[in-house]
Every structure is written in structure tokens, then in C-alpha cells.
Simulated scan of single mutants.
Amino acid sequence: MLNRDFKRNIKIGYVPMLDCASLIIARELGYFQKYDVSVVLSREAGWASVREKLINGELHASHAPASMVFELTCGLGVLKTPSLTGLVTALNGNAITLSNELWDLGVRDARTLKKVIDKFRGKRIFTFAGVLNYSSQHYLMRDWLLSGGIDPERDVRMAIVPPPLVSSNLQKGYLDGYCVAEPWSTNCVQNGRGWVACLTSDFSPYHIEKVFVVTEAFDSRQHEEHLAILRALMDAADFCDKPENREQVAQILAQTQYLDLPIESLKETLVGPFNLGNGRTANADEAIIFSRNDAGRPTAGKASWVLEQIRRHKLDLSNPSLNSDLIASVYREDIYEEAIVGLSSGSQENREQTESLALADRT
């Protein structure tokens, strides 16, 4: 039974992008009501806002970069706020986007970008962005540069720019490229501001992207409400991943109060084909994953990928608490399992079929 002693309106943050879809679908299609939990969604300008509001208690929960659980729990440059996740909300979902100028200079991939950087060495410094220091976009932007022999520390300038602002900054010449979650790459291409070099799923398939994060205090105080929200999000994620529902998902997300973007900017990733720009397209089948292939399960393997990226890119600030021993307490597969038990019978059956297929794919 839900705890009636606490305020029922649970405030959940999101940043407008495709990987917040399960939150919005859960609200619009009544999944929160189905599990008897009252939720208020709060659209945020960027991840710094989400992080600070979680710390200050202005948000009870949020969809967030997979690293934020570690960032908050270990106090990586912020006030230490023990947090956890019981659900991964998306895999993949990002793209590497470059300026039209780089295309005109002959850039087609990371290796040809290296040639341009070498040509302009000493004359110009090229700037590339992620959306948060501790985010897959930052790691993957750096990984992509490294794949072409480009040192992110010495050969280019790295910047952090909120997702909704990357496209305009590219157009104004403040950025030469960026890695961002959809739809901020397809929107850029449709507006003629840049082109997509590749999807991150092309070089890091099934990478963890976003999680549903809560503070330990919230889970302890309102555990049953937390479980109810997870069940609603699981049902919504299942809905979002069915091909026959993707166009409806795009229509809902496109509304002014949510992403406020043309529906075509959303359909390219959700339905396909994915427009890379300059007459090129890509298959969108794996562009973003919400539920299938056991995507939602917060496994130790997914958490380990996040830790490996933080260490690889030397972002751990020599914090002794940031280690693999922390994984079981912040990536809570036990809470995920507890939430599954309370799913409605139809949802439970669909979940079991999905996980059986995922297991078969892995064996």
C-alpha cells in the first residue's frame, strides 16, 4: 500500500529529448494513474539544473545521465547526496554532429577530421561539446575523437553546452561539433545547420544512456511510491518500443509543453530513416532503445561501463569512494526486481517475454 502520510504529488524532472519519452507517455496515457501515484513533471533547462534541484530537494526524482548517480553519491564536484537508480530509461539515442564548414573542408569521419585539425594546427583551435562533464555524450564525443587519432586534451577544445543550445551554438560558429541525445542532431540537420557523422550506436552499441534517479532519502521515505513510478515507467517504455506506437509517441512528445519541436524531427529517430544530412541516411532500428533487450535492468555491467568511462577520461577527481564496490548500492537491480513483481498481469507477461528474448539473444 502506498504511504499516505507524505505529499502525494511527486515532482519528477526531465530535460526535453527523446530519452525522456517514458515519463511523458506514462503521464499522457495514464500509467501513473494505473499504479495510483500522483506525479508532476518539471521541464528543466539542462542537467546542471536537474542535479542542483535533486540536491536541494526541489525535485524528488528525474530522468538523468547514467553517471549522475555516481556524481551525486560520491560528491564529484557537488554536494554529496547519496542516490540510486532502479531503472534504465534508455540505451543509445545519441549522434555525433559536425558543422557544415567541416563538411566543406572534406571531413567525413574522425580520421579525415584529424587531417583538417593537423592542417590548421597553430592557426585555429576546433571546439567540440558534450552536454555535461559526467555524461555519455562527453565520453562518447571524446571516444569518437580518439578513434581518429585526435587527443581531446591537446588537439581540440572541449566544452559543455546544454542540449537545447548545441544546435544554435554550432550555427553561430561557437562549436565545430558535438555529441547530444536526440532529437538535437536531427533538428540541426533539418534546419541546415550541420550534418551527422555517425550515431553513437554505430561505435558503442547498446551503451547505457539515461536512468531514473532518486535520492536514497526519497526511496527510504517513499519506497512504495518509488516502486509505483517504476512500474508506470516500465509499462510506458514497453509502449514506446513497439514499432506500431512510435508515430504516436512522436506526436505526443512534439507538443508545446514537452519538446516543442516539429514532429518530423522526432520521427526520424523513432520511425526512421535517420537523416544524416548531405543526402545520407541510416537505419533507425537501434537508434534508441527503451525496453527491449532487457534495456531497463540496472545491471552491474551497465554501471561498470559508466565507471570505466569516468576513469578512462580521468574525471574521477581522485575520489576514493568512486569504485566498483559502490555499484550494488547505486545501481539497484533488487529494486527493479521488486517493481516487476507488482506489475499488472498483462504487463508482467509482456515483461517476461521481452526478458526471455533478451536472454536468448545473449546465449
Rank of each mutant, 00 (worst) to 15 (best):
44 E>N: 05
222 Q>L: 11
191 N>T: 04
78 V>Y: 12
224 E>R: 11
315 L>V: 02
206 Y>L: 12
57 G>T: 07
16 P>R: 09
84 L>F: 07
18 L>S: 03
185 S>C: 15
308 E>I: 08
227 L>M: 06
225 E>N: 15
171 Q>A: 14
213 V>G: 01
47 W>M: 05
17 M>D: 05
356 S>N: 10
43 R>F: 02
171 Q>H: 12
42 S>E: 10
204 S>V: 09
23 L>Q: 04
111 R>W: 13
277 G>T: 13
274 F>T: 02
148 G>N: 15
301 G>C: 14
207 H>Y: 14
45 A>E: 12
136 S>I: 05
32 F>V: 03
185 S>N: 15
347 S>I: 04
233 L>I: 14
105 L>A: 13
141 M>A: 13
192 G>V: 11
276 L>A: 12
100 N>W: 15
329 S>T: 11
270 L>T: 09
89 T>S: 07
317 L>W: 08
115 K>Q: 09
325 D>T: 03
113 L>I: 10
112 T>I: 00
246 R>Y: 09
57 G>P: 11
41 L>S: 02
172 K>T: 10
40 V>G: 02
256 T>S: 04
126 F>K: 00
140 L>Q: 07
255 Q>S: 09
164 P>D: 05
69 V>K: 06
263 I>M: 11
352 E>S: 14
77 G>N: 10
96 I>W: 14
292 R>V: 13
212 F>N: 08
281 T>Q: 15
245 N>P: 01
41 L>T: 01
26 A>P: 13
270 L>D: 10
10 I>M: 04
142 R>Y: 03
82 P>N: 12
190 Q>W: 06
163 P>K: 06
172 K>V: 09
128 F>E: 02
282 A>L: 08
139 Y>E: 00
28 E>Q: 08
227 L>Y: 02
336 Y>H: 07
333 E>T: 13
326 L>F: 06
304 S>G: 13
139 Y>N: 02
189 V>Q: 13
114 K>V: 07
40 V>A: 05
305 W>F: 12
35 Y>S: 02
176 D>Y: 00
55 I>S: 01
255 Q>P: 01
237 A>S: 15
266 L>E: 03
208 I>M: 01
144 W>Q: 04
71 E>S: 02
234 M>I: 11
180 V>C: 09
87 L>C: 09
25 I>H: 07
61 A>P: 08
303 A>C: 13
216 E>V: 10
252 I>S: 07
305 W>E: 04
352 E>W: 08
97 T>Q: 02
278 N>H: 15
